[in-house]
Amino acid sequence: MIKVLFFAQVRELLDTPSLTLAAGQDTRNAGALRATLAARDELWARVMASERLLVAVNQTLSDWDAEIRDGDEVAFFPPMTGG
């Protein structure tokens, strides 16, 4: 299984803090997972299409071609605004 987390505005827009997905071809990398989530419905498509969307694989900021394996944790969120 792959654990998927959402933070800040992304979590709020999707009204979903987290979900789990079975690992497979449609979750092979961060970009594929993004496309899989975007295919859910119009709202998910809009949020996943954001140019500013960031992804972390196993708590490390990653590129969209970052590989995802069974048991990984993937998070989607907007640019950070701490400090």
């Binding site: 933070f7 800040a8 505005q9 709020e12 500013r52 972390a56 900021l61 998070a75 969120f77 907007p78 640019p79 950070m80 605004t81 701490g82 400090g83």
Partner: peptide, 22 residues
């Protein structure tokens, strides 16, 4: 810290709340 650490600010005034833009 401001650009790499995963913190997000949500601001509020008397009328509305909004996520702070990077």
């Amino acid at each position: 810290l401001k650009t790499q650490a995963p913190f997000w600010k949500l601001e509020a005034d008397n009328h509305e709340r909004r996520w702070v833009e990077a």
